[in-house]
Design a protein around this nucleic acid. Structure first.
Lengths: 216, 216
DNA sequence: GATGATCCTAATCAATTGATCAGGAAACAG
DNA sequence: CTGTTTCCTGATCAATTGATTAGGATCATC
């Protein structure tokens, strides 16, 4: 006979659902307020639970931070991997343009990603060590390898890959990371799909220029 | 008869010298650790004084933050104003290239600037309100006006000025803001003058491309 | 010489923080 | 029906934080 889960039967609250609500609240507050600026009381309130429950699900505040960041990078990896898989057989230049578009879109829908990165990687600390070795290095290696091939093929100006990496890492996400400032200064909503598309267009235009179009 | 100051006569410590040491320590720690992450005890220790002295010179932690940030923007304004004054009569394109170079260099020698901006402008708060209205808006207006003229003259691709502003604000400083990460990932020192020059070259190359050179 | 001002530290405080503990409610297993 | 497990909250704790207070040392002024 088919058996439904406790959650499906609308019985005792599922730990999984509560954990996910806590992780989502944690990610938002850690990225907006910093690790120290986000208190466990505020995270609990945002998740709709009491403060000691955080310690029930995650041993320490630091462990909660790591779990929240793991989930975020898992999502990024899944998005880029899926995109890249779907582009097998496509030429390097087109792939790169589309991956950058995907990256800008992911940055727009997940501004927490670069908020966390810029927050944790500005000074040496255990959290930066963990973040770089567990998540960032893999992306850095992949992105610089792609840029090296593009430079060699003449698709991108002769700029060292590390510089291209940091130019992209800055140019792509900053408008979305600073969305509150952008709304206030420019009076535009960085979350609007047409704004995100325009930004992806602009970043791609500046990195690749009209080179592919010149070839046509 | 010429009278020397107490400080010149090496007598009682000058309040000004102590204030400057406190401001420098505050700027470094606020930008590296966030407002909440930087404790008044750590700032005092870095400045070589005791914690209550911060309250003697600055009424509150928030007032100390504002004074530290004021000093930083004063320095930026002075640098850009002096540079711009020296370029009167030079054509728009050359001025823009040189101002961007100056901006990248300032970002390299003052990574605190964009650490503070990215930290405070990711969510609405009184500190962001103050920062935007007192300092950032003036720069935003000036930079977007320059970009609008450059686009109209065909020197820069037809990209809306707000997008160009955030692309520049991201591409220029990020390598220096994330200097500890960059050392660890890329094995290069973002503070090295040749690295700073290469980065300025790269940013200028991507924004302006070979357009000016094509005209020659 | 007395008094006031300046620059500073040690001690202290109230409030807040992250974590722990006791225990309740409800579902599950036998 | 009883005991166990799970998920959770209220109360509490030690440590930390930003700010306040008392007072010392030294210089300036009268």
């Amino acid at each position: 006979m088919a058996q439904s889960t406790a959650q499906e039967r609308n019985l005792r609250p599922s730990a999984d659902a509560t954990r996910e609500r806590i992780l989502a609240a944690a990610l938002d507050l850690f990225s907006e307020r910093s690790f120290e600026g986000a208190t466990t009381r505020e995270i609990a309130a945002r998740a709709g639970v009491t403060q000691p429950l955080l310690n029930y699900h995650f041993k320490t505040k630091d462990e909660l931070w790591r779990a929240a960041v793991d989930g975020l990078f898992d999502e990024l990896d899944a998005a880029l991997t899926a995109r890249q898989e779907g582009l097998r057989g496509v030429d390097d230049l087109t792939v790169a343009r589309l991956l950058i578009r995907e990256f800008v879109h992911f940055s727009a829908t997940h501004p927490q990603l670069h908020r966390i990165i810029t927050q944790e990687c500005k000074n040496d600390s255990p959290r930066m060590d963990w973040l770089v070795e567990r998540h960032i290095r893999r992306n850095y290696d992949a992105v610089t390898a792609i840029f090296e091939r593009l430079v060699a093929a003449g698709h991108v100006p002769n700029i060292p890959a590390p510089h291209l990496y940091y130019i992209l890492t800055g140019a792509g996400p900053t408008m979305f990371v600073l969305a509150p400032e952008c709304r206030r200064l420019a009076g535009i909503d960085p979350e609007a799909p047409e704004v995100v598309d325009a930004h992806a267009d602009a970043v791609i235009e500046l990195i690749f220029g009209h080179r592919a179009e010149e070839r046509t």
